[in-house]
C-alpha cells in the first residue's frame, strides 16, 4: 500500500475543458516525487486536489489507504497535520499583517497540536535558517528567498509526512534558488516532498522519482535517472531538449 495513492482522478472547472484527466500516481514515504510539465499543464490544479482544496469530478485520492474525504472533519484535521504545502509566490503567501512567529505557528494553533508552540516555531525557524530575530518581524522586512524560508518553516512546523511544493523557487533569483534547493534537499531526510515545477533540472536535483505531465495527464513516470536518460514519450524529449543540461 502506497502512502499516497491517486486513482483515475479527473477534474474540470466547467463542462468545456477537462483540466485533470484520468490521472493515477502513487507516492512512497521517504521518496520525493517530482511532477514536471509546462505552464498550464494542470500541476497547480493537481496539487489543489491533493490538498483537498478542490473536489475531483471523478476518481479518488487516498492516504495510507484512507480516502481523502473533505467533509469528514476528523479525517481532515489529521490530514492537514500530515500534508502541508509551500506556494509559488512568497509575497502573496504570507499575511502582511502577521508577525513571522504567528505565520509559522498557524498550523499548530489551527490544528490545536499539543506542543510547546514557541519551541516548535523556534525549531522550524532554525531548520530553515531564519535569523534569530525573525519571530517578531513582519513579512515586508524580508527578501523573497527569506520569505520562502518562512513559508517552508510554516509547512514543516507541525512535522508533516508530506509537503507539496508548487514552483517554490521560480519567483526567486538564481543564487537564492540554489540555497532554497539545498534547504529542501536537507529537509528531505525528515519529510517527503512533492516538487512541482516546469524545470526538469530542479526536479532532478531533489527527486528520485519523476512524473511528466502534459495537458492534465501523466505521460511518463518512473525513477528520475531512468526517465531522463531514456525518455520514451515525445513530450518528455521536448521538455528535455528545452532544458539546459546540468553540469
Amino acid at each position: 500500500m502506497s502512502f499516497i495513492q491517486v486513482e483515475n482522478l479527473s477534474f474540470r472547472y466547467d463542462q468545456t475543458r477537462t483540466i485533470i484527466e484520468d490521472l493515477s500516481l502513487s507516492l512512497e514515504k521517504g521518496r520525493n516525487l517530482g511532477i514536471v510539465g509546462e505552464s498550464g499543464s494542470g500541476k497547480t490544479t493537481l496539487l489543489r486536489l491533493l490538498l483537498g482544496l478542490a473536489q475531483p469530478s471523478a476518481g479518488s485520492i487516498s492516504i495510507d489507504g484512507q480516502v481523502l474525504d473533505t467533509k469528514n472533519w476528523q479525517f481532515m484535521r489529521d490530514f492537514r497535520r500530515r500534508v502541508q504545502a509551500v506556494f509559488q509566490d512568497p509575497y502573496s503567501s504570507l499575511d502582511p499583517r502577521q508577525a513571522i512567529f504567528d505565520i509559522v505557528a498557524e498550523p499548530l494553533r489551527a490544528l490545536k497540536i499539543d506542543v510547546d508552540v514557541a519551541k516548535a516555531v523556534a525549531e522550524a525557524a532554525t531548520a530553515v535558517g531564519l535569523p534569530a530575530d525573525a519571530a517578531q518581524r513582519y513579512p515586508h522586512e524580508f527578501s523573497g528567498g527569506q520569505r520562502q524560508r518562512i513559508a517552508i518553516a510554516r509547512a514543516i512546523v507541525a512535522r508533516p509526512d508530506l509537503v507539496l511544493a508548487d514552483e517554490v523557487v521560480s519567483a526567486l533569483d538564481l543564487s537564492t534558488r540554489i540555497l532554497i534547493v539545498d534547504l529542501l534537499k536537507a529537509l528531505s531526510t525528515s519529510v517527503t516532498f512533492v516538487v512541482v515545477s516546469h524545470d526538469i533540472a530542479l526536479v532532478a536535483l531533489l527527486c528520485p522519482d519523476i512524473a511528466i505531465m502534459e495537458k492534465g495527464r501523466i505521460v511518463e513516470s518512473g525513477p528520475t535517472e531512468h526517465v531522463l536518460s531514456n525518455p520514451v514519450h515525445p513530450y518528455t524529449r521536448r521538455l528535455l531538449a528545452s532544458t539546459p543540461r546540468l553540469p
Binding site: 482544496l53 504545502a85 506556494f87 502573496s92 504570507l94 489551527a110 490544528l111
Partner: peptide, 14 residues
C-alpha cells in the same frame, strides 16, 4: 484571492 488564505486553509484554519 491571496495565497496566504490558501495557506491558512492548508494549515487547517477554519
Amino acid at each position: 484571492s491571496m495565497d496566504y488564505i490558501v495557506a491558512a486553509r492548508v494549515a487547517g484554519s477554519s
